[in-house]
Design a binder for these strands. Structure first.
Length: 467
RNA sequence: GGCGGGGUAGCCAAGUGGUAAGGCAGGGCUCUGCAAAAGCCCCAUUCGUCGGUUCGAUUCCGACCCUCGCCUCCA
């Protein structure tokens, strides 16, 4: 069995084959955050999805080079920076740092490169220059540069491969009508935006005059710089299919004449409490909002990983409580396995890893993967309850978990050891129980509980567990 | 209007032309001085509706209903 992934280009699940299969290396680019605010849970679904892809490729033996851009120049950023009276870099720097912190909280592996748009203006200008040279782009009267879709098509290129739009449907809508730029055709998109007064001191010199880059061009410039003019995998949220990714393909292939990306993957959006997230509905959550409610990054990550990435997903606070319970079940099992395994060591138990891999190989069907994991948890529990699981087997189970967790990224929750005061309370309770002074024993139990520790009476005696 | 997803138990969510994974919640049991925690067991004759193809359809086809997304800078 080998990895098959859905490719938006072909709208089908197909074997994943990198450009250079022999090297087992994969170049992967994911459209990153626009740093003008704290990222919300919907943004993070996409990044956790990208992390899953990256981890699974690594699990599958690929050497992944993961690039994610930081969009730090854009209309909304400019406006907000201006409102906050901060220099662009100072403003975006705050949200970039917050984003990365959130990224870590969700246990996502950091990309190998995090290029910022503003550090790659010259690369963007170079691409625009190539397009102008080939007459696929033109300079408008105001100094903006647009991509000419007609010319691109005339070169034998196809526009609309991802989204399958017909050009007649691309009639100017309200948003286009209000666009003041001087395009020759409504479908054309900006590569370079001429400087306007509202931009303040945010502008760069270019052969076409002062201005700033359009939105799509940054991804073409940075991905091709870091991964080559053709690379393997490009990811993003489903809303980016059109126009962002469609335009990326057009400007990249228009400039290089070479195929841009082999494999496109898009993560579906999520609903929150059954509705589209919106601030007015009160169901708009940043990661920070959820942490404030007492949920952990690990729980949020788990919930985001319960549904298949191409299905829209209903993110709820109830679901988060469910994730907490589900993780506790896994943690409990792993803690017991650790106890049984003691010092033993063994290679991963293929009985669980193999079906897990089979599930993930089929377009990352992690929902099916969870079924494998929970079936396995039940089996382990059953065997341990019957006292029929040897140290070797427990060790093999733990190795298997570590291997699968390489993909899940949830970690092995370390057993917390209780502080001295709590341990002495436990001792006193044990003595009270021995003396059959149950009133005292129960009082001590309550005291422990209010101190945040639950007593678990097991066959091997009482132990404490963090609440 | 154009294009594309979905509708599976109380909730979340897989899946298959051969008779419905898994998680949460719920119920029962074990353990316990009582609890708690934990574990085990149970929990959809049925997959939006109606037709059709088929020995057999939740799965394929058609119609309809509902829902979500995209259609020019939103993950």
């Amino acid at each position: 069995m080998s990895l098959r992934l859905f490719n938006t280009l072909t709208r089908s699940i197909q074997p994943f084959t990198p450009l250079d299969p022999a090297a087992r290396s994969v170049g992967m680019y994911c459209c990153g955050p626009t740093v003008h605010d704290y990222a919300h849970i919907g943004n993070f679904r996409t990044f956790v999805f990208a992390d899953l892809v990256r981890r699974y490729l690594q699990f599958s033996g690929y050497n992944v080079h993961h690039v994610m851009n930081i969009t730090d120049v854009e209309d909304k950023i400019l406006r907000r920076a201006r409102e906050s009276n901060l220099a662009l870099r100072e403003f975006t720097g705050r949200y970039e740092a917050a984003f990365l912190q959130d990224f870590d909280t969700l246990l996502c592996r950091r990309p190998h490169a995090l290029p910022r748009a503003t550090d790659h203006i010259s690369e963007m200008i170079a691409i625009i220059g190539r397009l102008v040279e080939r007459s696929i782009a033109y300079r408008a009267a105001d100094g903006s540069v647009f991509f000419n879709i007609e010319r691109y098509r005339a070169c034998g290129c196809q526009y609309g491969r991802l989204v399958h739009l017909n050009s007649e449907a691309l009639r100017p809508g309200e948003r286009v009508a209000s666009d003041e730029y001087e395009k020759e055709s409504a479908a054309d998109f900006a590569l370079w935006k001429a400087r306007v007064p509202e931009d303040g001191d945010v502008f760069w010199e270019s052969p076409w005059g002062e201005g700033r880059p359009g939105w799509h061009i940054e991804c073409s410039a940075m991905s091709m710089k870091l991964l080559g003019e053709s690379f393997d995998l490009h990811l993003g949220g489903e809303d980016l299919v059109f126009p962002h990714h469609e335009d990326e393909i057009a400007q990249s292939e228009g400039a290089t004449g070479r195929p841009f990306v082999r494999h496109w993957m898009h993560g579906a959006h999520l609903l929150v409490e059954g509705k589209k997230m919106s601030k007015s509905l009160g169901n708009y959550f940043t990661l920070r909002d959820l942490l404030e409610k007492g949920y952990t990054g690990r729980e949020i990550r788990h919930l985001l990983l319960t549904a298949h990435y191409r299905e829209s997903f209903n993110f709820t606070l109830d679901g988060l409580a469910g994730s907490r319970a589900a993780l506790a079940r896994i943690d409990e099992c792993l803690a017991k396995l650790t106890e049984v395994a003691a010092e033993a060591d063994a290679p991963p138990d293929a009985k669980v890893v193999a079906p897990f891999k089979a599930a993930l190989d089929e377009d990352l069907n992690l929902s099916a993967g969870w079924a494998v994991i929970f079936d396995w948890v039940r089996e382990c529990n059953r065997a341990m309850a019957a006292g029929q699981l040897g140290a070797e087997c427990a060790a093999a189970a733990l190795s298997a978990w570590r291997q699968m967790d390489d993909v899940l990224g949830l970690g092995l929750k370390a057993a917390q050891s209780a502080p001295k005061e709590m341990l002495s309370l436990l001792d006193r309770r044990n003595l009270a129980r021995k003396a059959k002074d149950f009133a005292l024993a129960d009082a001590l139990r309550d005291e422990l509980r209010s101190g945040g520790w639950a007593i678990e009476d097991t066959a091997k005696g009482a132990r404490l567990k963090r609440l």
